[in-house]
């Protein structure tokens, strides 16, 4: 895991050195998209060959939905408090 964080930080630092070259930024964003597509394709492959995941897809979907709703409502309710405390006064 530490390797991943080092690689990520190395990427950020390299990016900072290249900040004056917008072309590289654009090319990199294309590469990033394809890296994500490749990894999701690989995730699909390993899911397709993994009987345990395939058999539990309904359960996984249900859990995913429940976690999504809990995450959303946790943050939305707190953001409502923050809005009342800090933002509403100066809004108008």
């Amino acid at each position: 895991m530490i390797v991943i964080l080092i690689v990520l930080s190395a990427g950020i630092l390299t990016g900072l050195l290249l900040i004056k070259r917008p072309k590289i930024h654009r090319i990199n964003n294309h590469l990033l998209n394809w890296a994500i597509y490749l990894l999701l394709f690989l995730l699909g492959l390993s899911v397709g060959t993994n009987k345990e995941v395939i058999q539990n897809l309904g359960k996984i979907g249900y859990e995913a939905l429940v976690i999504a709703l809990a995450s959303i409502f946790g943050s939305v309710i707190l953001s409502g408090l923050l809005f009342k405390l800090l933002f509403n006064k100066n809004a108008k």
């Binding site: 690689v7 990427g11 950020i12 390299t14 990016g15 990033l32 890296a35």
Partner: peptide, 14 residues
């Protein structure tokens, strides 16, 4: 690893 490097690069160079 490649993805993380590219993700970092995109944050840093933006």
């Amino acid at each position: 690893y490649l993805l993380m490097f590219l993700a970092g690069l995109s944050i840093g160079s933006d």
